[in-house]
């Protein structure tokens, strides 16, 4: 187990390094000058040259890369060309918002995807199953940004049930920043009003972002359940006269959980991608908005920071999934 962990950690480092290298490579083919983009409308050639020199943009690519890696080794991601701040600070500001949103979406997906999948499997080929499958198919094909616009229009504008874009009502004061995760910070500060408002703001974007994942989870759970339900021990359990709900929840679900676990990693990747679009519509100040703004401004140091942290998050989650797998499923040997 320890050997396996070490090997996986090694490959994690490699993958994250590769993600950084690939981004760096892309940044080198940019035709426009990031210095000119950063200095704005009125910069003069001399200023642009000075800026290039100051930021090391005039050095050959390999030197720039070495400098970057040197700094990275010290935990310094460099400065953003757009915001002029250390990228680490930017990420600290933006990551918690995306984390909160993604977590919300994931919860939504599990909360609705798992029961839907179970119900569909139990009532295979009945109207309920068809309904779940149809919804899952549509959920997997809907452009998330359009869903976001519609949801906002319906639940916020027309019905007025939920608040509009943003993380918190502007008239409320945010609790002292501890984690940057607003709901958690509100809880820590014991601020009930902020907690409720933050949750209300979170509900819609999380549901929209989670729609695709809900579809995926429902499909996975359904097929895994079908597989398990047809197996001998379930039939035996049924034959023993145990109530169906017990059989389903106790025996089948436990065994169906593993395949769901495997998609969690890729689910997260998909959520981060979806967050880019969802955050745009919901004015959600997260990593997605930050990445879009940075890519638009050709701020590659910032894009690099985002890809590194996203790559790291993805790799860590997958590692955790693998470890959980090892814990839950003793059949898998790690040598």
């Amino acid at each position: 187990m320890l050997g396996f962990l070490l090997r996986r950690l090694g490959s994690l480092v490699f993958v994250v390094w590769g993600v950084g290298l690939a981004t760096f490579f892309i940044s080198q083919v940019v035709p426009t000058d990031p210095a000119a983009a950063a200095l704005g409308n009125n910069a003069r050639p001399a200023q642009i040259a000075a800026y290039r020199e100051k930021r090391g943009l005039d050095k050959p690519a390999w030197q720039q890369y070495l400098l970057y890696m040197q700094a990275l080794a010290k935990g310094d991601l460099g400065k953003s060309l757009r915001t002029q701040r250390p990228i680490l600070n930017d990420l600290k500001d933006f990551f918690p918002a995306t984390f909160e949103l993604t977590l919300g979406a994931m919860l939504f997906a599990l909360l609705f995807g798992i029961p839907a999948g179970i119900l569909a499997a139990v009532k295979q080929d009945r109207p309920l199953d068809l309904g779940v499958r149809t919804l899952a198919l549509i959920g997997g094909a809907t452009p998330v940004y359009w869903l976001a616009i519609l949801a906002l229009l319906l639940f916020h504008s027309k019905l007025g049930w939920l608040p509009g874009p943003g993380r918190l009502d502007a008239f409320l004061l945010a609790p002292p920043r501890v984690t940057g995760i607003l709901t958690l910070d509100a809880l820590l500060a014991g601020d009930w009003e902020v907690l409720v408002d933050a949750l209300r703001h979170l509900l819609l974007p999380a549901a929209v972002l989670g729609a695709f994942s809900t579809a995926l989870v429902a499909r996975m759970v359904r097929s895994a359940m079908l597989e398990v339900l047809s197996q001998d021990f379930v039939r035996t359990a049924k034959a023993k006269g145990l109530p169906e709900s017990t059989v389903v929840l106790k025996h089948a679900l436990r065994n169906a959980a593993l395949p769901v676990l495997t998609v969690l990693g890729s689910l997260l990747g998909g959520l981060l991608t979806g967050a880019v679009l969802t955050e745009t519509i919901f004015s959600w100040p997260g990593l997605g908005s930050y990445a879009t703004a940075s890519a638009t401004a050709l701020d590659f140091p910032a894009v690099m920071g985002v890809t590194l942290i996203a790559g790291l998050a993805y790799s860590v989650i997958n590692l955790l999934v693998d470890v959980m797998y090892a814990v839950f499923d003793p059949r898998i040997a790690y040598s």
Binding site: L152, H156, G166, I281, S283, P285
Partner: peptide, 17 residues
């Protein structure tokens, strides 16, 4: 408040946010 979508500004103003 940074609200890049004009629709968002519109609905937020109408709802008093």
């Amino acid at each position: 408040r940074h609200m890049p979508e004009s629709n968002a500004q519109r609905t937020a103003l109408e709802s008093g946010e």
